[in-house]
Computed example of a mutant assay.
Amino acid sequence: MSAPLQLVATLKAGRVVGVHAENIRPLAAQVLVGKSVDEAAALAPAIFSLCGVAQGVGVRAASAVAGGGDFVMTAAIERALSLEAIKLHLWRLMLDWPVLFGRAPERQRFAFVLKRIDQVTDERSAYEAGGSVLDLVARELLAGFMNSLREPRNLSEFADACRRSGSIGDALARLIEAGASDPIAHPVPLLAPLPASVFADALPGGWPDADYCRAPHLSGDVYETGPLARHVNNPLVARLVIHRHRIAARLFARVVELSDCASRLRHPLPGDMPALVDVAPLPGGGALARIETARGVLLHALRLDGDTVADYAIVAPTEWNFRPGGVFEQEGAGWAAPDVAYAEWRLRALALALDPCVQYAVSVTEEAAADA
């Protein structure tokens, strides 16, 4: 069975061109139509299991407002969302990124941390688990920066600090040393955390139809969502962006966000961080919930007929980043590659940095040079 997300490109005269992301996964939200709210809230996490907590919260939040009530963000909801995001971030950081650089995945370490996180049952255990994750970030993922008396002055020092920070640091250093990864003069803008009302007001026709769900935008403009968009103002992340190392910046931003998630476990509902969830009414009836997930912004649009779901639409982060004309297609093209193997490796790095929530396959075809 082929992967639902096919990422294809052509290598022509030493440059990668014709990058295309074909996303054939079905729009499964319609399965929720005709179900009761309780049934939909139970079914959504089963359909979208990778971010099941966020999907279930989306159903509950949107249905509360669509039914004429209010959605109240609680510490318990934030804790559940933060725990899910931590697991997804660690999965990528410990299992997937090392493999891309020929290293063994850190399965035992991942299992140990995961067991610690799965023991969270209340505020105290959440506080302790948050401390364990912060300790992991400080001692391993960012050790080279934590142990330095000053920030790196240049990219060479940045790479040296990364290399003293375990397998993820090694990946960051090698990404930096591979050269700038942003070949376009005007990169796709980053989707900063925005309230649900902004998305609701900008929806064409007041509802995310199938075309919008496949290729979301904000008032006609294409955006990138995810950890980089949320943490581009972090000084170290910004340093990488300024030097056009956006793949490395996304990886670094994921580590920064891991710390934020851990902080939310220890100090819930912080006033100095954007809310993870909010809801806005839709002009034609119903409601739109916005949930910040590990991969980016998730939108749930719902209309009710009594307690029954009359219409449902979900806009996932993958559709923002891998839409036609989106950040993967734009940033993946226009750079030099010595051979197909390198082109495929770099496109895999870009895809992993953008983190689709479905299986994907990368393929590059070399076009024969024209006869002189």
Rank of each mutant, 00 (worst) to 15 (best):
R230S: 01
L11E: 11
L269A: 00
A349F: 04
G205A: 04
K35G: 03
A104H: 12
I86W: 00
V53W: 11
S156H: 12
I86S: 00
R230N: 07
H267T: 10
V113H: 02
P216K: 03
D122H: 11
A287C: 12
K12G: 03
E257N: 09
V65Y: 09
A289Q: 14
L240W: 09
D305F: 14
A336F: 13
A178N: 13
C213Q: 15
D38E: 15
A41E: 13
A215T: 08
A253M: 12
V33W: 11
I168E: 10
A341I: 11
R264L: 03
G285V: 09
A54L: 10
E329N: 04
F110M: 00
L203N: 00
V309P: 06
A171E: 06
V256K: 02
I176G: 02
L269D: 08
A336I: 14
A75R: 14
D122I: 09
A143C: 10
A173V: 11
W97N: 02
G334M: 11
L114D: 13
S165V: 09
P317K: 05
S197I: 05
R254H: 15
A337H: 05
A66G: 15
L228H: 03
L347S: 04
G326H: 02
A253F: 06
Q359I: 08
P227W: 05
M94R: 02
T308P: 07
R153W: 08
A202Q: 04
D38V: 07
L288E: 07
A40K: 08
G326W: 00
A138I: 09
A178G: 14
R250N: 10
A75Y: 13
A336M: 13
L269N: 07
G326E: 04
F199P: 03
G326P: 01
A171K: 03
A138Q: 15
A275Q: 09
R150V: 05
N233H: 15
L93A: 00
A229K: 04
A215P: 07
L172S: 01
G296D: 12
F158Y: 15
F110H: 05
L32R: 06
E224T: 13
N321A: 07
L134F: 13
I291E: 01
L352A: 15
L190G: 01
S363L: 13
M73I: 11
F101T: 01
E157P: 09
D278V: 11
A61Q: 15
I47G: 12
I77P: 10
A249F: 14
A138Y: 12
E292D: 14
A143S: 11
V327C: 08
E257Y: 12
Q6F: 10
G220D: 10
E329Y: 08
L304R: 04
A353D: 08
N23R: 08
Y312W: 14
N234L: 10
R25V: 05
L27I: 09
T121Y: 01
A40L: 14
P324E: 03
P189W: 02
P105L: 05
V309E: 00
C261A: 15
L251R: 02
R116P: 03
G206A: 04
